[in-house]
Amino acid sequence: MSGLRSFVARRLLLGVAQVVAVVLLVFALTEALPGDAAVVLAGDQPDPARIEAIRTAMELDRPAWERLVDWAAGLLRGDFGTSLTSGRPVAQYLTGAFGPTLLLAALTVALLVPTGVGLGVLAARYEGRLVDRLTSSVTLAVYAVPEFALGVLLVTVFALRLGWLPPTAVGHGTDLLAHPGVLVLPVLVLLARPVCSLVRLVRAGMIDALASPYVAHALRYGVSGARVRYLHALPHALAPAVQQLARTIDWLLCGVVVVETLFVVPGLGTVLLGAVGERDVPVVQGLAVVFGVVTVVLNLGADVIAHRLAPRAGVAA
């Protein structure tokens, strides 16, 4: 296990470097965008003198690297800085928006794993039969629909025509749990494509595992079919699915911009969209740090779990 521990330590160090690189890149790219927060704030009175005044007030006239160093120094003390446009601390933005995003992600994953794995095992068990053909073709079809199209379709049918569910989360603030109705459609849209890829991966892995000599051997020695499927075959079949799952959670946590915008969910994606539009560099950088950390931690977790599921493969740094 010491090999695993040093692997985790190496990966975490590498992760810190990756987060730093992401922040630098994001900073450079936002600097490269035409216009800045001062121009945005000046609004429909783009008087050069006024813009210059705002710029001085916001300290945007200082060299870019000085602002970056200042911000980084603050970050080390746990201070994400303040928003340029609203003057509120960036940390407040992040914590406020993280709630809805986390809620959506948690609900989606809670439904995704049992559905994906269950359907995958089912399809593999009846490989080539009706259940399998049905699962495979439906998952392929659903996977081919982009989430904005599916979102629009669901809103049209269930919210506008049938009126069963609210079309968006407008007016509910960040406390979405108090109004579960607004969560149904976003979660369905978020679920649609990940379920399909998970089902297909689990199915492929299970077909291999079920055809393996060790499954035949366990059945031969009188171990029950369900036990063999879920305890002996499934762990081996899950290894590739775990990596895919990590990417999905990453996608869910790092701002599903399209879905949040579509359903007007005040999550990280919505904040990101607003901040980029307003050239609110500190908020964008704060988000970059959060996204970077989430991605590094999730992928590390996935590699550790995959190592547990496929112990022969070893760990590759």
């Binding site: 000599p213 060790y214 051997h217 002996h232 075959a233 081996h236 599921l309």
Partner: peptide, 11 residues
């Protein structure tokens, strides 16, 4: 015939 992802004691 030994499941690669399970410890020896499982079966």
């Amino acid at each position: 015939v030994l499941a690669p992802a399970r410890r020896v004691d499982a079966l």
